[in-house]
Amino acid sequence: MADQVIQTSPANARARALAVLMAPKLSAPDLAVAQRTAPYEPWPLVTRLSAIASADTAAGTSTEGLAPDIQSLAQADFARALQSNWGMREVVKIYAQHSALRPIIQDALGGFTPAEQSRFIRLVRQTAASSG
């Protein structure tokens, strides 16, 4: 369905994000296009984060993990999400569930103030305490 919407409306941010999520394999060019259509809009951003987390899960125990071009795109989306309360909560969930993505998220946090970084750490600890 997303592909049909993209055919008639190539700039549809939700369709682009959904196509990235539903693709058999995460593609850096497709992720980049999805990011350009709506870099900060909540629904497409959360959908892209889900696609990144799913790609990490698909990599599983593979030694290759996410490709470097996807890692840089993922870092940009994590940084965007970390700028809002709802986005930070989404990133905290991913951080807690996907240890392989933690270095990418930590790199995204590098551009934030120490207070914002501390807030993120508090949310991670709260999440860990409530699920443990």
Rank of each mutant, 00 (worst) to 15 (best):
A28L: 03
A28H: 01
A28W: 02
A28R: 09
P29R: 06
D30Q: 15
D30H: 14
D30Y: 09
D30P: 08
L31I: 05
A32Q: 13
A32P: 06
V33L: 11
Q35V: 04
Q35Y: 10
Q35T: 12
Q35R: 09
T37R: 08
P39E: 06
Y40G: 11
E41I: 06
P42D: 04
P42A: 10
P42C: 01
W43D: 09
W43A: 10
L45P: 03
R48S: 00
I52T: 05
I52K: 01
A53G: 06
S54T: 11
A55T: 05
A55H: 00
A55C: 06
D56K: 03
A58T: 11
A58S: 12
G60V: 05
G60F: 15
G60K: 05
T61H: 12
T61S: 14
E64M: 09
G65K: 05
L66H: 06
L66T: 03
L66M: 07
P68T: 06
D69K: 09
D69H: 10
D69Q: 10
D69W: 05
Q71F: 01
Q71Y: 04
Q71M: 04
S72W: 04
L73P: 02
Q75R: 15
A76E: 08
A76K: 14
A76S: 15
D77K: 01
D77S: 14
R80D: 07
R80S: 12
A81W: 01
A81R: 07
A81G: 03
L82A: 07
Q83C: 10
S84P: 00
W86G: 11
W86E: 12
G87L: 04
R89I: 01
R89Y: 05
E90S: 14
V91M: 06
K93A: 12
K93C: 10
K93T: 12
K93Y: 00
A96S: 14
A96L: 08
Q97E: 14
A100R: 15
L101H: 02
L101Y: 03
R102P: 05
P103Q: 00
I104Y: 07
I104T: 15
I105Q: 02
I105M: 07
I105A: 07
L109W: 03
G110S: 13
G111T: 08
F112K: 07
F112Y: 14
T113G: 15
P114N: 11
P114R: 10
A115P: 01
A115V: 11
E116I: 05
Q117I: 02
Q117D: 06
Q117N: 09
S118I: 02
S118R: 15
R119D: 14
R119S: 11
R119M: 10
R119G: 09
F120D: 10
I121V: 15
R122A: 13
R122P: 03
L123S: 14
L123Q: 15
